[in-house]
Amino acid sequence: MQEEIVRIVFGEAETANVWFYVEIVFRTLVMYLYTIFLARMVGHDAIGQIGPFEFVLVIAVGSAAGDPMFYPDVGLLQGILVITVVVLLHRATGALLARSSKVESLVEGDPVLVIKDGHIIEDALGSGALSLRELLALLRVEGVRDTGEVEAAYFENNGKLSVFRYPAEKAKRSRSTEPLRTQR
Score class of each variant (00 low, 15 high):
M1G: 04
E4I: 00
I5Y: 03
I8A: 15
F10G: 03
G11V: 02
E12W: 08
E14R: 05
T15A: 06
V18G: 07
V18D: 03
F20R: 01
Y21N: 03
V22S: 02
E23I: 10
E23K: 13
I24E: 07
V25T: 14
F26W: 13
T28R: 11
V30L: 12
M31V: 11
Y32T: 01
L33R: 10
A39Q: 06
A39R: 04
R40A: 04
V42T: 03
V42A: 06
G43T: 06
D45C: 11
A46P: 00
P52V: 01
E54P: 02
F55D: 00
V56H: 03
V56L: 02
V56P: 05
V58H: 11
V58G: 05
I59P: 08
I59M: 15
G62H: 14
S63W: 07
S63Y: 10
A65G: 15
A65N: 12
G66W: 15
G66M: 04
D67K: 15
M69K: 12
M69T: 13
F70C: 00
Y71A: 04
P72F: 13
P72G: 13
D73W: 13
L77N: 05
G79L: 01
G79Q: 05
G79R: 07
I80H: 10
I83G: 14
A92L: 13
T93V: 08
A95L: 14
L96P: 11
A98H: 12
A98C: 13
S101Q: 15
S101I: 11
S101M: 07
K102G: 09
L106K: 05
V107P: 07
E108D: 04
E108K: 07
G109L: 01
V112F: 06
V112Q: 11
V114S: 05
I115T: 02
K116L: 14
H119C: 05
I120M: 09
I120G: 05
I121R: 09
A124I: 10
G126R: 08
S127R: 14
S127E: 02
G128L: 04
L130P: 07
S131T: 15
L132N: 05
E134I: 03
E134H: 07
L136D: 03
A137W: 10
A137R: 14
V141M: 14
V141G: 10
T147F: 08
T147I: 09
G148W: 00
E149N: 04
V150D: 04
A153G: 00
Y154G: 01
G159Q: 01
G159P: 02
K160I: 01
L161I: 08
F164P: 01
Y166M: 06
A168S: 14
E169L: 15
K172Y: 07
K172H: 10
S174T: 01
R175M: 08
S176Q: 06
S176D: 06
T182L: 13
